[in-house]
Design a protein around this nucleic acid. Structure first.
Lengths: 231, 231
DNA sequence: AATAATTAGTGTCAAATTAACACTTATTTT
DNA sequence: AAAATAAGTGTTAATTTGACACTAATTATT
């Protein structure tokens, strides 16, 4: 039994960092917390923590996010590894990065995590600002290809809301006629008999996702954004 | 100085595994090696190794690949983390997965790594078969969006060769007229005054990539594959 | 009661892109 | 000279795209 093989190798602290984007009705935001321990105490940071013995990195990300924000069962995707030997000054830490996009409203106020407008993201500890930039790039690509964005808009949403969301992510104006046409052409949306009257006098119809179709026939959403090309 | 914070946490063995796809003229292949140490000695495996103290995971992947295959400066992309606590029986190991696509010909015969047809991939150690499936899925998506595939076809290549490559990756037939038209419409290809006469009597013109355009204007290649949708 | 203000919702058309389709060309072998 | 092989190319109808601006529904104001 040659366990020696494993013994020779150095173990490493393995962390997860969660980049949580939020949207409500206007702008893309990002969730941050203030470190309450050294090093870098008091500075703003992503939600992070270490992978423990009996959990997978994905589970660790879920646990860390929940413990710091109360957010549970958020689908996150691993999108990068930051593992430069000197990225943290005190000790070597390799970080696995996960991102998600949620509705800002679902964050409970019992926690200290705070939303920042993405455009006004403060300086963060270590290399966290780079992580945010990379996550935003991934989000753009992902959103172009997959209708994931509908999921975050809770159960029901209006077409103007989706439009605003895409505009926030791509920081671009969209032609609402063309965009609506494409949305509806996907046949993923079911019109409800109910209107959102909070945001306009006329009121906008709510829609929901047709999950039966959605699961199988995942559709290419590229070119939702005219003239926009990946990366 | 609260270094204790770090001390409390368990360190983990961190590995990299390299999924190297190869193509020459017909089929998509995958590079494997036979383990020459326990556990699982003698079984087929991906090229893997541990991340060492003074290297980033990306550097580790490069080092491991080079030491086992001689392949150097291969662009690999991190695409998954396999970190289930029990994925290796002897000891907990979290593995970062990287993939690349190269021309099978560039592999030197001095090494023990061996090409297998992807369709005849043998049973591999641990969860390596799952890694291969995930990598293949990523490759499909990636290839649809980016012209990366030209890069692997060394300096020059013919249009029939590219067509075969895409057909191998998507395991699908392509209409050669339509596909050629799209390739040329990208304006990424420069026709050379030289023919490949090895593969046909008539001979096919070589092309090379116009790197000056390639770098900036990365073009969406989605819908290179008619009716094909992501994932 | 009429008017103004606000945002939702919709249609057309010209241009570009797509997918389906089969024959000719160049060269080598026999 | 004929046969074999793989390269290379063009047309057309259908679909999709992007540019464009008005009408509809409701509420607030006067």
């Amino acid at each position: 039994m040659t366990l020696d093989f494993y013994k020779k190798n150095k173990k490493i602290l393995l962390a997860v960092d969660c980049i949580i984007f939020g949207f409500n009705k206007e702008e893309l935001e990002i969730l941050l917390i203030q470190r309450d321990f050294e090093p870098e105490k008091g500075k703003w940071s992503l939600m992070g923590g270490f992978v423990e013995e009996n959990e997978s990195p994905g589970d660790a990300a879920q646990r860390v996010l929940k413990s710091l924000t109360g957010l549970d069962h958020i689908y996150m995707e691993q999108f990068a590894v930051f593992g430069n030997p000197n990225r943290e000054p005190q000790e070597r830490v390799v970080s696995l990065c996960y991102f998600a996009l949620i509705n800002t409203e679902i964050l409970s106020t019992d926690y200290k995590a705070k939303w920042f407008k993405l455009e006004k993201c403060p300086p963060l500890i270590f290399d966290h600002n780079e992580m945010v930039v990379e996550a935003h790039n991934k989000l753009k690509k992902k959103a172009a290809l997959y209708p994931i964005l509908f999921e975050l808009l809770s159960d029901k949403f209006t077409i103007p809301q989706i439009t605003l969301l895409y505009e926030a992510i791509y920081q671009n104006q969209l032609d609402k006629r063309n965009f609506t046409r494409k949305l509806l052409a996907s046949k993923l949306l079911i019109k409800l008999n109910e209107k959102d009257k909070e945001n306009s006098k006329k009121g906008a119809y709510y829609y929901k996702v047709d999950k039966s179709i959605y699961k199988e026939k995942i559709i290419s959403f590229l070119n939702f954004l005219p003239g926009w090309y990946g990366e």
